[in-house]
Design a protein around this nucleic acid. Structure first.
Lengths: 137, 137
DNA sequence: TTAAGTGTAATAAACACAATTACAGTTTTC
DNA sequence: GAAAACTGTAATTGTGTTTATTACACTTAA
């Protein structure tokens, strides 16, 4: 299955940015249309990345830890640490084949370039900008 | 991306570019370290994209259909048509939630941007350049 | 003290991919 | 024209990844 954690995380953080209050995992889960436990697991990694704060107990939940102007999509991307955009063939090479023995290094460079391109794109978008776009729609 | 078809395809085409001969699926499969049927299925899509020609029967196999200088990684990427680099949440929105109702459009724009960035990167690399890199390594 | 949350483990279900088997069809070569 | 060596392709199985679900200990506010 395709990993949707980045999508989930952006969605959750946008809700928190818009509401500016503590929101519980059940409410967030309904917005994303997934299970509260899935949300809570995601909240843990977002908290580890310093993007949100959580509170246990009654009236607990999550809220943004900083100004949405200072949260980029790249920070969210790094927090959830998704799989690389281009998957490499990790099996061992056929020793007798020249291409097989050397393609891995070259492909890794290409994948790194693709990754860098995506990261550059995401670095240019803040949560605040996203929030404004949503409001205008 | 989750699947390795792009990696497999680049590998296969590099072998064909280096050998400049008809190569059968069993040989290609050994180089990639996978199953000949997996290779043959990939060869079909590469042929459909006009990148290779195949020949059935004895001494059959695949060969490049054009100069490696005129094959870009983007063409290979498009041929195998991998899943998007950023996975969107495709479930239906929670009607009562403003963010939920509008995030999809915005996320789609972000994903499109990421896709475009990767495509731009891949468009700049030819099979010929790859081949030369491999030779030098 | 109770209600309403989080944190977290364990397990099941869903899904995507790749591997494998099997065999019909094609083409070369002898 | 028969055999050998391929491709094309369907069907099925195996494997790993991701999400969903259940359960419950722990925390906090009212």
């Amino acid at each position: 299955m395709v990993n949707q954690q980045f999508s989930f995380a952006v969605h959750i953080l946008t809700v928190l940015a818009v509401t500016r209050r503590v929101v519980d995992s059940r409410t967030l889960a309904r917005s994303v249309n997934t299970n509260p436990v899935v949300v809570r697991r995601l909240l843990l990694v977002l908290r580890a990345a310093g993007l949100i704060e959580t509170q246990a107990g009654k009236n607990g939940g999550a809220q943004l830890a900083r100004d949405p102007r200072r949260i980029t999509l790249l920070q969210i991307y790094d927090a959830v640490d998704p799989r690389p955009v281009l998957a490499l063939n990790e099996r061992k090479a056929a020793r007798h084949c020249f291409v097989s023995c050397n393609i891995k290094t070259v492909m890794a460079l290409i994948a790194d370039g693709a990754e860098a391109a995506v990261r550059k794109h995401l670095r240019g978008i803040t949560l605040h900008r996203l929030q404004r776009k949503i409001r205008r729609s």
